[in-house]
Design a binder for these strands. Sequence first.
DNA 1: AAGCATTTGTAAACAGTGCTTACAAAGAAA
DNA 2: TTTCTTTGTAAGCACTGTTTACAAATGCTT
Lengths: 207, 207
Amino acid sequence: MTDVKIRRGDLREALITHAQEEAKAGTIEQMSLRHAARELGVSSGAVYRHFDDKDALLQEIVLRGMHELKAKFAAIRPKDAPARSVELALHRGRELVRTYIQFAQDNPSLWHLMFGRIGAELKHILMCDPEEASYTAFDVCHENMLDLWRLGALKQEPSLDDVRYVWSATHGAAELTLSHQRIDFAEIDAVCDQTSERNMRAIGFAG
Amino acid sequence: MTDVKIRRGDLREALITHAQEEAKAGTIEQMSLRHAARELGVSSGAVYRHFDDKDALLQEIVLRGMHELKAKFAAIRPKDAPARSVELALHRGRELVRTYIQFAQDNPSLWHLMFGRIGAELKHILMCDPEEASYTAFDVCHENMLDLWRLGALKQEPSLDDVRYVWSATHGAAELTLSHQRIDFAEIDAVCDQTSERNMRAIGFAG
DNA sequence: AAGCATTTGTAAACAGTGCTTACAAAGAAA
DNA sequence: TTTCTTTGTAAGCACTGTTTACAAATGCTT
């Protein structure tokens, strides 16, 4: 992987990058700090100048993953850009599903960290942020549904429970797609279509 | 935990039981074979007379978990007991959701094993079994939906895609409930109701 | 520029891990 | 009783995360 000599003080970022690469490669579960340090040409004790323990490093890359996904979501339905047409809102809904599922597909082991033990205390970044101004991924879903409602495309105003359900369905689809056993979801695209179409049905789309 | 002296030859089952206890306690991620062996009053090498490696032991308890869940499903909608009323089919549908979510709640870390790396090659037990006669959990869901269709309660015949979607939604609900961050699903029961109600909407329940 | 303090690295050690190998005892089969 | 197979042991290998005592590099102050 990376084997450029680390300049004094760059170790922290180098370790994060290394971990991210292992995540992309899907080998992060068996990542070893000693091996990482060796790879970066540094003693194993040096790691502990930058992270309290192994979990702290993993948490850091989970944190970054969360922000990345959150940003992707916000780009699809920007905070002050409500959909002006039902078509656009529907398209955005599908894009949200596609983005979520694609992210899982592209970062399988990071994804497991994000929604497993490591990410437990960081999920609020995606779901509900204490800072009100935050506009989380969850908010994006909610706003997009509200757009549909405002445009008269839903039978009733979408509740938070609706958002949670849609999120669950999408999350589940991502998870099952990841390890797409014989449930051979033909291919990602079909899953996205199916999921977002039924998401709409579930929240009472009147089309 | 268990500290009865192991009779010669009982080690295998004792190890499985021990692992299951660790799973129930939610500590299986950091389970150690050496520690388990010590706990059972046996040398660490003895373990390898019964399991190729650590993963093999984990796989065994995943296998048993799968069969347990599958059995619970089959009990709700037995193979040759189609629902005679819409009410019953709806009730069964809710019970399936409840069972799934409750199972995750009761066995959090086993559940992660089941749907993570370890369980990857065993999912067919739940989803689609090569032996046709098997009647998997997936089949149960499908049959229950077909019951609704036969009783005239659905707008169209439920497809495999419908089953997959409903499964995804339920699976996602279970996962999000497990680590119910601020998304504080009021309590399990409410999630079950919400999930199964919207599941019905998604597959075109005409009620 | 000199001295000092902080940051960031090293080397060595500790306690733990999964797993293998050589050997011994227990049980079943001949 | 003798043999063979199964199931255990003890010791060791190569690894892990983490801590400690120490040293070098860097930045700050006088």
